[in-house]
Amino acid sequence: MKVAVSCIGDNLDAAVDPRFGRAQGFLIVDTDTAALQYVPNAQNLQAVQGAGIQAAQNVLNAGIEVLITGNIGPKAFRVLQEAGVRVYTGASGSVRQALEALQDNQLLETSQATKPGHWM
């Protein structure tokens, strides 16, 4: 199973980025093989609008089933929900800690956006 974690850095010790659409990047972790893939999000950091939608598209293109982040807005959430991705929010610490927290069932799966949209 592939899990994406929004983060600042390209390894397991990188800090979780609490933002989703405007996260620095995503570390994609294959929990079966322990393979890592870093997906930068630089393009969306500069986006005038729709950063969340395109960040969601990026992690979906990597074939993820689970996303871990701090907060997520309504449009990005709609895209991930449509694609059947499970979204866990409120993560902090390092990517490694976030993955452990997921395994220990300490993260909350969210059924809705956790922050208001950027403009409606």
Binding site: V48, Q49, P116, H118, W119
Partner: peptide, 12 residues
Amino acid sequence: ENSGKLVAQVRQ
């Protein structure tokens, strides 16, 4: 344009 986005930024 995009004053709505700027408002969102200010509020955030």
